[in-house]
Simulated assay, not measured.
Amino acid sequence: MIHVRNAREGDADILMNIGLRAWQKAMAPIGDTDALLDSARDAFSNFIREFWLTITVVEQNGASLGWAAREGLDETISDFWIDPASLRQGLGSALLSQIEKDIVDQGFEKAALQTHSGNAEAIGFFKSHGYQIHWLSVVYSPKLDRDLPTVGLSKTLVNTGDGTYGPGI
């Protein structure tokens, strides 16, 4: 059974390992992940310990298998990680559904996120859940020492229009 819950302070190590495994898979098209593994581990550990109150965890049969964060507690999904061994089991969909509900419950009308453009699996997942690519940018990544093409995706969660053109009278 799939269950979504808020993170607990003691979840740090397991969430770090999930994030690290998912990060390695997502970064495989970029390469050089072995050289960055220690830095990535530290970054995940520090992030989770500092921002654990912004993290939502997805479990299956009591085992934590993924997590997402909204670091700024706004409409931006800053992190979304599912353990690669647990993909295509509905965990990501359940987690995304809860994150989107939280975004709407907190008064925001859309959800947004970004990833590198080579992360086809993640882009496909979010597009299959109604997200659209709205921008493409190339940013320099000091850790990778290279330019990294990045895409921004978003989805309108609240329909504010009545389907008519112009102001209502």
Rank of each mutant, 00 (worst) to 15 (best):
residue 1 M to F: 13
residue 3 H to N: 13
residue 3 H to T: 14
residue 6 N to T: 00
residue 7 A to S: 15
residue 10 G to C: 04
residue 10 G to K: 04
residue 11 D to Q: 12
residue 11 D to R: 13
residue 11 D to G: 11
residue 11 D to H: 12
residue 12 A to C: 13
residue 13 D to G: 02
residue 13 D to M: 00
residue 14 I to Q: 15
residue 15 L to A: 09
residue 17 N to P: 00
residue 18 I to M: 07
residue 21 R to W: 02
residue 27 M to H: 04
residue 29 P to I: 06
residue 38 D to W: 06
residue 40 A to P: 01
residue 41 R to T: 15
residue 42 D to G: 01
residue 43 A to S: 14
residue 43 A to V: 02
residue 44 F to N: 03
residue 46 N to V: 05
residue 46 N to C: 02
residue 47 F to C: 00
residue 48 I to Q: 03
residue 48 I to C: 03
residue 49 R to Y: 01
residue 51 F to K: 12
residue 51 F to S: 10
residue 52 W to N: 07
residue 52 W to M: 04
residue 55 I to H: 11
residue 55 I to K: 09
residue 55 I to N: 11
residue 56 T to A: 07
residue 57 V to G: 09
residue 58 V to E: 04
residue 59 E to Y: 06
residue 61 N to W: 00
residue 62 G to W: 14
residue 66 G to I: 07
residue 70 R to F: 08
residue 71 E to Q: 15
residue 71 E to I: 07
residue 72 G to N: 15
residue 74 D to I: 01
residue 75 E to K: 04
residue 77 I to Q: 07
residue 80 F to W: 00
residue 80 F to R: 00
residue 81 W to M: 13
residue 81 W to N: 13
residue 82 I to S: 06
residue 82 I to K: 04
residue 83 D to K: 07
residue 83 D to L: 09
residue 85 A to Q: 08
residue 85 A to E: 13
residue 85 A to P: 02
residue 86 S to T: 02
residue 87 L to P: 00
residue 89 Q to A: 08
residue 91 L to A: 15
residue 91 L to F: 08
residue 91 L to Y: 11
residue 92 G to H: 02
residue 94 A to T: 00
residue 97 S to I: 01
residue 97 S to Y: 09
residue 98 Q to L: 12
residue 99 I to Q: 05
residue 100 E to M: 11
residue 100 E to T: 05
residue 101 K to T: 15
residue 101 K to M: 10
residue 102 D to W: 00
residue 102 D to T: 06
residue 103 I to K: 10
residue 104 V to D: 03
residue 105 D to G: 11
residue 106 Q to M: 10
residue 106 Q to K: 13
residue 106 Q to W: 05
residue 107 G to A: 08
residue 108 F to S: 04
residue 108 F to C: 03
residue 111 A to Q: 12
residue 111 A to M: 11
residue 113 L to A: 07
residue 114 Q to N: 06
residue 116 H to S: 09
residue 116 H to I: 06
residue 116 H to L: 07
residue 117 S to E: 14
residue 117 S to L: 08
residue 120 A to W: 04
residue 120 A to N: 09
residue 121 E to D: 13
residue 123 I to R: 11
residue 123 I to L: 03
residue 123 I to G: 02
residue 123 I to P: 03
residue 124 G to K: 02
residue 127 K to G: 05
residue 128 S to P: 09
residue 128 S to K: 15
residue 130 G to E: 03
residue 131 Y to S: 10
residue 132 Q to C: 04
residue 133 I to A: 12
residue 135 W to S: 12
residue 136 L to T: 13
residue 139 V to C: 09
residue 139 V to G: 14
residue 140 Y to R: 13
residue 140 Y to K: 08
residue 141 S to Y: 07
residue 142 P to L: 07
residue 146 R to A: 13
residue 147 D to K: 10
residue 148 L to Q: 02
residue 148 L to N: 00
residue 148 L to E: 03
residue 150 T to Q: 12
residue 151 V to T: 10
residue 151 V to H: 05
residue 151 V to N: 10
residue 152 G to R: 14
residue 153 L to C: 05
residue 154 S to C: 09
residue 155 K to A: 06
residue 156 T to C: 06
residue 156 T to S: 11
residue 156 T to G: 06
residue 158 V to Q: 07
residue 160 T to C: 09
residue 160 T to Y: 03
residue 160 T to G: 12
residue 160 T to V: 11
residue 160 T to M: 07
residue 161 G to I: 03
residue 163 G to K: 10
residue 163 G to A: 06
residue 164 T to Y: 10
residue 165 Y to G: 01
residue 167 P to H: 01
residue 169 I to N: 13
residue 169 I to G: 12
residue 169 I to L: 12
